[in-house]
Write a protein that binds this DNA or RNA. Sequence first.
DNA 1: TGCAATTAATCAGCACACTGAGTAGTTCCC
DNA 2: GGGAACTACTCAGTGTGCTGATTAATTGCA
Lengths: 155, 155
Amino acid sequence: MAAVDLSTHPGHLARRLQQAHYLLWNTMVSEEITSPQFAVLNALVAEPGLDQRTVGERVGLDRSTVAEVISRLSRRGLLDKVRDPQDGRRFLLRLTDEGARTHRRLTVRTARMNRVFLAPLSAEEQTLFFDLVRRVSEAAEGLRDPAAPLTGVEA
Amino acid sequence: MAAVDLSTHPGHLARRLQQAHYLLWNTMVSEEITSPQFAVLNALVAEPGLDQRTVGERVGLDRSTVAEVISRLSRRGLLDKVRDPQDGRRFLLRLTDEGARTHRRLTVRTARMNRVFLAPLSAEEQTLFFDLVRRVSEAAEGLRDPAAPLTGVEA
DNA sequence: TGCAATTAATCAGCACACTGAGTAGTTCCC
DNA sequence: GGGAACTACTCAGTGTGCTGATTAATTGCA
Protein backbone atom coordinates (compact mmCIF):
# COMPACT_ATOMS: atom_id res chain seq x y z
CA MET A 1 0.00 0.00 0.00
CA ALA A 2 2.97 2.33 0.26
CA ALA A 3 4.57 1.53 -3.06
CA VAL A 4 6.56 4.24 -4.74
CA ASP A 5 6.50 5.40 -8.36
CA LEU A 6 9.94 4.43 -9.61
CA SER A 7 9.62 6.67 -12.63
CA THR A 8 10.19 9.57 -10.26
CA HIS A 9 13.45 8.05 -9.07
CA PRO A 10 16.41 9.41 -11.00
CA GLY A 11 18.53 6.36 -10.18
CA HIS A 12 15.99 4.03 -11.64
CA LEU A 13 15.73 6.20 -14.74
CA ALA A 14 19.51 6.20 -15.03
CA ARG A 15 19.56 2.42 -15.05
CA ARG A 16 16.84 2.25 -17.68
CA LEU A 17 18.66 4.82 -19.77
CA GLN A 18 21.83 2.79 -19.67
CA GLN A 19 19.96 -0.38 -20.57
CA ALA A 20 18.43 1.34 -23.55
CA HIS A 21 21.84 2.51 -24.59
CA TYR A 22 23.36 -0.95 -24.19
CA LEU A 23 20.72 -2.35 -26.49
CA LEU A 24 21.22 0.27 -29.14
CA TRP A 25 24.99 -0.11 -28.93
CA ASN A 26 24.73 -3.82 -29.60
CA THR A 27 22.48 -3.21 -32.55
CA MET A 28 24.16 -0.23 -34.14
CA VAL A 29 27.79 -0.24 -33.07
CA SER A 30 29.25 -3.63 -32.21
CA GLU A 31 28.52 -6.95 -30.59
CA GLU A 32 32.23 -7.57 -29.94
CA ILE A 33 33.40 -4.30 -28.45
CA THR A 34 31.41 -2.84 -25.57
CA SER A 35 30.97 0.80 -24.80
CA PRO A 36 33.46 0.80 -21.87
CA GLN A 37 35.98 -1.01 -24.09
CA PHE A 38 35.54 1.68 -26.71
CA ALA A 39 36.07 4.31 -24.02
CA VAL A 40 39.41 2.71 -23.14
CA LEU A 41 40.50 2.54 -26.78
CA ASN A 42 39.52 6.17 -27.15
CA ALA A 43 41.53 7.23 -24.11
CA LEU A 44 44.59 5.54 -25.60
CA VAL A 45 44.10 7.23 -28.96
CA ALA A 46 44.06 10.56 -27.15
CA GLU A 47 47.02 9.74 -24.91
CA PRO A 48 49.11 6.74 -25.96
CA GLY A 49 51.26 5.23 -23.25
CA LEU A 50 48.95 5.83 -20.31
CA ASP A 51 49.04 3.43 -17.40
CA GLN A 52 46.00 1.47 -16.19
CA ARG A 53 45.13 3.67 -13.28
CA THR A 54 45.11 6.83 -15.39
CA VAL A 55 43.05 5.19 -18.10
CA GLY A 56 40.52 4.29 -15.44
CA GLU A 57 40.52 7.86 -14.23
CA ARG A 58 39.95 9.19 -17.75
CA VAL A 59 36.99 6.96 -18.55
CA GLY A 60 35.53 6.55 -15.08
CA LEU A 61 36.34 2.93 -14.28
CA ASP A 62 37.76 1.71 -10.98
CA ARG A 63 41.07 -0.20 -10.74
CA SER A 64 39.53 -3.66 -10.86
CA THR A 65 37.14 -3.05 -13.72
CA VAL A 66 39.72 -1.31 -15.84
CA ALA A 67 42.08 -4.24 -15.29
CA GLU A 68 39.53 -6.68 -16.68
CA VAL A 69 38.57 -4.51 -19.62
CA ILE A 70 42.22 -4.05 -20.52
CA SER A 71 43.00 -7.74 -20.22
CA ARG A 72 40.18 -8.47 -22.67
CA LEU A 73 41.38 -5.87 -25.14
CA SER A 74 44.90 -7.16 -24.78
CA ARG A 75 43.80 -10.76 -25.30
CA ARG A 76 42.17 -9.72 -28.55
CA GLY A 77 45.31 -7.98 -29.70
CA LEU A 78 43.86 -4.48 -29.64
CA LEU A 79 46.45 -3.08 -27.24
CA ASP A 80 49.90 -3.79 -25.86
CA LYS A 81 50.91 -3.80 -22.22
CA VAL A 82 54.54 -3.05 -21.43
CA ARG A 83 56.23 -2.60 -18.07
CA ASP A 84 57.31 0.96 -17.57
CA PRO A 85 61.13 0.85 -17.43
CA GLN A 86 61.00 4.03 -15.34
CA ASP A 87 58.55 2.60 -12.81
CA GLY A 88 58.21 -1.14 -12.48
CA ARG A 89 54.77 -0.94 -10.91
CA ARG A 90 53.17 0.50 -14.01
CA PHE A 91 52.13 -1.03 -17.28
CA LEU A 92 52.21 1.35 -20.22
CA LEU A 93 49.35 0.83 -22.66
CA ARG A 94 49.36 1.46 -26.36
CA LEU A 95 46.97 0.50 -29.14
CA THR A 96 48.09 -1.94 -31.78
CA ASP A 97 47.39 -1.13 -35.42
CA GLU A 98 44.40 -3.40 -35.18
CA GLY A 99 43.26 -1.49 -32.09
CA ALA A 100 43.58 1.85 -33.86
CA ARG A 101 41.69 0.49 -36.86
CA THR A 102 38.91 -0.79 -34.62
CA HIS A 103 38.67 2.57 -32.89
CA ARG A 104 38.39 4.39 -36.22
CA ARG A 105 35.69 2.06 -37.45
CA LEU A 106 33.63 2.31 -34.25
CA THR A 107 33.96 6.09 -34.05
CA VAL A 108 31.84 6.42 -37.16
CA ARG A 109 29.25 4.04 -35.82
CA THR A 110 29.00 5.57 -32.38
CA ALA A 111 28.36 8.97 -33.94
CA ARG A 112 25.51 7.44 -35.91
CA MET A 113 24.16 5.72 -32.84
CA ASN A 114 24.29 8.88 -30.77
CA ARG A 115 22.17 10.65 -33.38
CA VAL A 116 19.56 7.90 -33.24
CA PHE A 117 19.66 7.75 -29.45
CA LEU A 118 19.05 11.50 -29.13
CA ALA A 119 16.67 11.77 -32.07
CA PRO A 120 13.58 12.14 -29.84
CA LEU A 121 14.99 15.44 -28.56
CA SER A 122 15.28 18.74 -30.42
CA ALA A 123 18.69 20.36 -30.74
CA GLU A 124 18.06 22.64 -27.76
CA GLU A 125 16.76 19.76 -25.71
CA GLN A 126 19.86 17.73 -26.51
CA THR A 127 22.05 20.53 -25.20
CA LEU A 128 19.91 20.72 -22.10
CA PHE A 129 20.04 16.94 -21.67
CA PHE A 130 23.84 16.98 -21.61
CA ASP A 131 23.92 19.93 -19.27
CA LEU A 132 21.47 18.47 -16.76
CA VAL A 133 22.90 14.95 -16.72
CA ARG A 134 26.43 16.25 -16.44
CA ARG A 135 25.58 18.57 -13.57
CA VAL A 136 23.85 15.83 -11.60
CA SER A 137 26.67 13.31 -12.13
CA GLU A 138 29.40 15.75 -11.28
CA ALA A 139 27.68 16.96 -8.15
CA ALA A 140 27.21 13.37 -6.95
CA GLU A 141 30.83 12.49 -7.74
CA GLY A 142 31.84 15.53 -5.70
CA LEU A 143 30.12 13.98 -2.69
CA ARG A 144 32.60 11.10 -2.69
CA ASP A 145 35.09 11.73 0.09
CA PRO A 146 36.13 15.39 -0.09
CA ALA A 147 37.94 15.16 3.26
CA ALA A 148 34.37 15.46 4.52
CA PRO A 149 34.44 18.92 6.04
CA LEU A 150 30.81 18.65 7.15
CA THR A 151 30.12 15.06 8.10
CA GLY A 152 27.24 16.04 10.34
CA VAL A 153 25.03 16.68 7.31
CA GLU A 154 23.39 13.27 7.14
CA ALA A 155 21.45 13.70 10.38
CA MET B 1 44.67 11.81 -33.25
CA ALA B 2 41.00 11.05 -33.90
CA ALA B 3 39.93 10.70 -30.30
CA VAL B 4 36.39 11.58 -29.43
CA ASP B 5 35.04 13.67 -26.55
CA LEU B 6 33.13 11.12 -24.48
CA SER B 7 31.31 13.84 -22.59
CA THR B 8 29.26 14.34 -25.75
CA HIS B 9 28.24 10.67 -25.74
CA PRO B 10 24.92 10.13 -24.00
CA GLY B 11 25.70 6.48 -23.30
CA HIS B 12 28.89 7.38 -21.51
CA LEU B 13 27.06 10.01 -19.49
CA ALA B 14 24.37 7.49 -18.62
CA ARG B 15 26.98 5.14 -17.22
CA ARG B 16 28.59 7.90 -15.17
CA LEU B 17 25.19 8.97 -13.91
CA GLN B 18 24.42 5.47 -12.76
CA GLN B 19 27.78 5.18 -11.06
CA ALA B 20 27.17 8.42 -9.22
CA HIS B 21 23.81 7.10 -8.14
CA TYR B 22 25.25 3.79 -7.00
CA LEU B 23 27.71 5.64 -4.81
CA LEU B 24 25.08 7.86 -3.25
CA TRP B 25 22.76 4.91 -2.69
CA ASN B 26 25.45 3.08 -0.76
CA THR B 27 26.11 6.12 1.37
CA MET B 28 22.60 7.34 2.00
CA VAL B 29 20.24 4.39 1.60
CA SER B 30 21.73 0.99 2.29
CA GLU B 31 24.83 -1.12 1.94
CA GLU B 32 22.79 -4.33 2.15
CA ILE B 33 19.93 -3.71 -0.24
CA THR B 34 20.73 -2.48 -3.72
CA SER B 35 18.60 -0.24 -5.87
CA PRO B 36 17.35 -3.06 -8.13
CA GLN B 37 16.53 -5.12 -5.04
CA PHE B 38 14.51 -2.21 -3.70
CA ALA B 39 12.73 -1.97 -7.05
CA VAL B 40 11.67 -5.61 -6.74
CA LEU B 41 10.46 -5.14 -3.17
CA ASN B 42 8.54 -2.09 -4.33
CA ALA B 43 6.88 -3.98 -7.18
CA LEU B 44 5.70 -6.61 -4.72
CA VAL B 45 4.33 -4.00 -2.34
CA ALA B 46 2.31 -2.60 -5.23
CA GLU B 47 1.18 -6.01 -6.52
CA PRO B 48 1.66 -8.91 -4.12
CA GLY B 49 1.66 -12.35 -5.70
CA LEU B 50 3.31 -11.45 -8.97
CA ASP B 51 5.42 -14.05 -10.74
CA GLN B 52 9.10 -13.57 -11.58
CA ARG B 53 8.64 -12.69 -15.20
CA THR B 54 6.09 -9.98 -14.45
CA VAL B 55 8.22 -8.51 -11.69
CA GLY B 56 11.04 -8.27 -14.20
CA GLU B 57 8.75 -6.53 -16.63
CA ARG B 58 7.65 -4.03 -13.97
CA VAL B 59 11.13 -3.03 -12.90
CA GLY B 60 12.98 -3.53 -16.17
CA LEU B 61 15.09 -6.59 -15.44
CA ASP B 62 15.49 -9.55 -17.76
CA ARG B 63 14.57 -13.10 -16.73
CA SER B 64 18.06 -14.11 -15.59
CA THR B 65 18.81 -11.02 -13.58
CA VAL B 66 15.44 -10.98 -11.87
CA ALA B 67 15.94 -14.63 -10.90
CA GLU B 68 19.21 -13.79 -9.17
CA VAL B 69 17.87 -10.72 -7.42
CA ILE B 70 14.88 -12.68 -6.19
CA SER B 71 16.96 -15.58 -4.97
CA ARG B 72 19.05 -13.16 -2.92
CA LEU B 73 15.99 -11.49 -1.43
CA SER B 74 14.50 -14.88 -0.72
CA ARG B 75 17.71 -16.12 0.90
CA ARG B 76 17.59 -13.13 3.23
CA GLY B 77 14.01 -13.87 4.14
CA LEU B 78 12.56 -10.73 2.57
CA LEU B 79 10.17 -12.57 0.26
CA ASP B 80 8.48 -15.93 -0.19
CA LYS B 81 8.36 -18.00 -3.37
CA VAL B 82 5.42 -20.39 -3.79
CA ARG B 83 4.45 -22.53 -6.78
CA ASP B 84 1.31 -21.27 -8.42
CA PRO B 85 -1.27 -24.05 -7.92
CA GLN B 86 -3.03 -22.80 -11.06
CA ASP B 87 0.10 -22.91 -13.23
CA GLY B 88 2.99 -25.09 -12.14
CA ARG B 89 5.52 -23.18 -14.17
CA ARG B 90 5.13 -20.02 -12.13
CA PHE B 91 6.37 -19.01 -8.72
CA LEU B 92 4.21 -16.51 -6.90
CA LEU B 93 6.15 -13.94 -4.93
CA ARG B 94 5.10 -12.19 -1.77
CA LEU B 95 6.98 -10.05 0.75
CA THR B 96 7.51 -11.36 4.25
CA ASP B 97 6.83 -9.02 7.17
CA GLU B 98 10.55 -8.41 7.32
CA GLY B 99 10.51 -7.57 3.60
CA ALA B 100 7.65 -5.12 4.04
CA ARG B 101 9.43 -3.51 6.98
CA THR B 102 12.62 -3.17 4.96
CA HIS B 103 10.72 -1.59 2.11
CA ARG B 104 9.12 0.95 4.43
CA ARG B 105 12.42 1.86 6.00
CA LEU B 106 14.19 2.29 2.66
CA THR B 107 11.35 4.29 1.14
CA VAL B 108 12.09 7.14 3.53
CA ARG B 109 15.78 6.99 2.78
CA THR B 110 15.44 6.83 -1.00
CA ALA B 111 13.26 9.93 -0.92
CA ARG B 112 15.99 11.73 1.00
CA MET B 113 18.63 10.49 -1.40
CA ASN B 114 16.66 11.59 -4.43
CA ARG B 115 16.48 15.09 -3.03
CA VAL B 116 20.24 15.20 -2.57
CA PHE B 117 20.89 13.66 -5.97
CA LEU B 118 18.75 16.26 -7.75
CA ALA B 119 19.76 19.16 -5.54
CA PRO B 120 22.00 20.72 -8.21
CA LEU B 121 18.92 21.32 -10.37
CA SER B 122 16.13 23.82 -9.84
CA ALA B 123 12.57 22.54 -9.59
CA GLU B 124 11.89 23.30 -13.26
CA GLU B 125 15.15 21.67 -14.27
CA GLN B 126 14.26 18.56 -12.31
CA THR B 127 10.99 18.25 -14.19
CA LEU B 128 12.84 18.72 -17.43
CA PHE B 129 15.45 16.16 -16.41
CA PHE B 130 12.80 13.50 -15.87
CA ASP B 131 11.06 14.39 -19.09
CA LEU B 132 14.18 14.28 -21.26
CA VAL B 133 15.64 11.12 -19.75
CA ARG B 134 12.32 9.33 -19.93
CA ARG B 135 11.75 10.29 -23.56
CA VAL B 136 15.18 9.11 -24.63
CA SER B 137 14.88 5.78 -22.76
CA GLU B 138 11.41 5.06 -24.01
CA ALA B 139 12.27 5.85 -27.60
CA ALA B 140 15.29 3.55 -27.45
CA GLU B 141 13.26 0.76 -25.85
CA GLY B 142 10.77 1.15 -28.66
CA LEU B 143 13.55 0.32 -31.13
CA ARG B 144 13.84 -3.17 -29.65
CA ASP B 145 12.17 -5.56 -32.08
CA PRO B 146 8.89 -3.96 -33.16
CA ALA B 147 8.38 -6.59 -35.88
CA ALA B 148 10.87 -4.31 -37.64
CA PRO B 149 8.64 -2.77 -40.32
CA LEU B 150 11.51 -0.71 -41.75
CA THR B 151 14.67 -2.72 -41.39
CA GLY B 152 16.34 -0.86 -44.24
CA VAL B 153 16.87 2.18 -42.01
CA GLU B 154 20.38 1.34 -40.88
CA ALA B 155 21.93 1.76 -44.31
C1' DT C 1 -6.34 -37.94 -27.09
C1' DG C 2 -2.13 -36.58 -28.24
C1' DC C 3 1.44 -33.94 -30.13
C1' DA C 4 3.24 -29.20 -31.34
C1' DA C 5 3.85 -24.64 -29.89
C1' DT C 6 4.26 -21.62 -26.17
C1' DT C 7 5.80 -20.17 -21.79
C1' DA C 8 8.19 -19.76 -16.82
C1' DA C 9 12.11 -20.72 -14.89
C1' DT C 10 16.98 -22.38 -14.78
C1' DC C 11 21.70 -22.75 -16.18
C1' DA C 12 26.17 -21.70 -18.36
C1' DG C 13 28.88 -18.20 -20.07
C1' DC C 14 30.41 -13.57 -20.57
C1' DA C 15 31.04 -8.66 -19.23
C1' DC C 16 30.83 -4.61 -16.17
C1' DA C 17 31.32 -2.70 -11.46
C1' DC C 18 32.60 -2.13 -6.58
C1' DT C 19 35.11 -3.32 -2.07
C1' DG C 20 38.75 -5.08 0.82
C1' DA C 21 42.98 -7.52 1.16
C1' DG C 22 47.41 -8.72 -0.61
C1' DT C 23 51.84 -8.18 -3.48
C1' DA C 24 55.44 -5.85 -5.54
C1' DG C 25 57.65 -1.94 -6.80
C1' DT C 26 59.07 3.21 -5.61
C1' DT C 27 59.90 7.27 -2.82
C1' DC C 28 61.13 9.73 1.05
C1' DC C 29 63.46 10.71 4.88
C1' DC C 30 66.32 9.68 8.76
C1' DG D 1 71.51 2.40 3.04
C1' DG D 2 67.43 0.93 5.14
C1' DG D 3 62.80 1.00 6.82
C1' DA D 4 58.14 3.46 6.54
C1' DA D 5 54.79 5.27 3.61
C1' DC D 6 52.89 5.25 -0.63
C1' DT D 7 51.42 3.49 -5.09
C1' DA D 8 50.16 0.23 -9.27
C1' DC D 9 48.39 -3.76 -9.89
C1' DT D 10 46.23 -8.26 -8.71
C1' DC D 11 42.94 -11.33 -6.48
C1' DA D 12 38.73 -12.94 -4.11
C1' DG D 13 34.13 -12.05 -3.34
C1' DT D 14 29.62 -10.10 -4.45
C1' DG D 15 26.11 -8.17 -7.42
C1' DT D 16 23.94 -6.47 -11.82
C1' DG D 17 22.96 -7.44 -16.63
C1' DC D 18 22.79 -9.77 -21.12
C1' DT D 19 22.32 -14.06 -24.48
C1' DG D 20 21.53 -18.74 -25.86
C1' DA D 21 20.30 -23.38 -24.56
C1' DT D 22 17.62 -26.44 -21.66
C1' DT D 23 13.83 -28.18 -18.75
C1' DA D 24 9.28 -28.53 -17.23
C1' DA D 25 4.57 -27.29 -17.34
C1' DT D 26 0.58 -25.56 -20.00
C1' DT D 27 -2.18 -24.61 -23.99
C1' DG D 28 -4.15 -25.27 -28.22
C1' DC D 29 -5.35 -27.51 -32.11
C1' DA D 30 -5.93 -31.37 -35.28
